[in-house]
Each structure stands twice: as structure tokens, then as C-alpha cells.
Simulated assay, not measured.
Amino acid sequence: MALTAPRTLDPTAICRSSDPLAVRELLSKIGDKWTIFVMLSLDLLGGRARFSELERAVPGISQRMLAVTLRSLERDGLVTREVFPEVPPRVEYEMTELGRSLLAPTQGLVDWAKAHWEKVRAMQSLYDSAGE
């Protein structure tokens, strides 16, 4: 019986990038549940919103998670933060051009999830019941 060599795949082929680890890191950041909802909510609010507006718009997010998510989005250049010298201070977040460029692919992913969630749930139930 002949032994076959294990197949190997060049990691750069997966995402067609010379730095697949950087791509994976960015995908994991923008693909988390809060980033997607914050970006889409910001878009629906006209591209600019106050913290409290975003907090009301994103179902289930805590103030802490919203702050962490917005800080990360600001660091990545997807949103900007503007503080107005008022009492109490007013803070608004606005999508950058880079952030707006993320909307179409993000909405595509959300549309796919919306169209297929029932099928995925059915498959999960089938899988789970087969394991029992």
C-alpha cells in the first residue's frame, strides 16, 4: 500500500494576502457581534450619533461594551469621536470614509444570516440530536 504525502496549503492562499495573520486579526475585530451592530446602527442613524443613541439602538449591549467597541472602532479608523465643550459634555461618533466602505460587505453578511438562520438552526438541532 502506497503512502500519500499530507496535503499542505500555503496560508497566504486562504485570504490572498501576504500577511494572513493581519487579515485574520482584522476580520475577528470587525466580525464580532457588537461591531457589526454598532456600524449598522450608526449608518441607520445617519452616520453620526451620540453614545446614548447608539446604546438605545444596539439590542443587548452594555454601556461598557459599547464604549470598548467604539474605542476599538476609533483606533482602527472606522469612526471618529468628537467631544463638544458643553455641560454635561456631549460626545458624538461619526463613521469615517473607511468605516462607510465596510457597510456593504457587512450588510451582505447580515442579509445572508437573515436568509439562512432557520436552516442553520435546523442543522444544529439535527447535529445535536444525532450526538445523543
Rank of each mutant, 00 (worst) to 15 (best):
Cys15Thr: 12
Leu78Met: 05
Glu74Phe: 07
Phe37Val: 15
Met1Pro: 01
Leu73Val: 14
Ser129Phe: 02
Ile61Phe: 02
Ala115Tyr: 02
Ser125Arg: 06
Leu9Glu: 04
Glu118Leu: 14
Glu94Ser: 15
Lys119His: 11
Ala5Val: 12
Ser28Arg: 05
Ala130Lys: 08
Asp32His: 13
Gln107Cys: 02
Gly131Gln: 07
Phe51Leu: 03
Ala67Lys: 00
Gly47Ile: 03
Gly77Glu: 10
Val68Pro: 01
Arg48Gln: 15
Arg50His: 11
Arg100Pro: 07
Thr96His: 04
Pro88Met: 11
Leu70Asp: 00
Pro11Phe: 12
Arg75Ala: 13
Glu86Tyr: 03
Asp128Glu: 15
Arg48His: 15
Lys33Cys: 06
Tyr93Lys: 01
Arg56Gly: 13
Pro11Leu: 12
Trp112Glu: 11
Pro20His: 04
Pro20Ser: 12
Pro105Ala: 07
Trp112Leu: 15
Ala13Lys: 06
Asp111Val: 10
Ser129Asn: 10
Val23Tyr: 00
Pro89Thr: 15
Gly108Cys: 07
Gly60Val: 08
Pro85Met: 08
Leu3Thr: 06
Gly47Thr: 09
Arg81Cys: 10
Arg56Trp: 14
Ala22Met: 10
Ser125Asn: 10
Lys29Ser: 05
Leu42Val: 08
Ile14Asp: 07
Ala57Trp: 02
Ala13Ser: 11
Pro89Met: 13
Glu25Ile: 07
Phe84Val: 15
Ala2Asn: 01
Ala122Pro: 09
Arg7Glu: 01
Phe84Met: 12
Met95Asp: 02
Val79Asn: 01
Val68Trp: 01
Pro11Tyr: 08
Ala113Asn: 11
Ile30Asn: 03
Ala67Asn: 00
Arg56Cys: 15
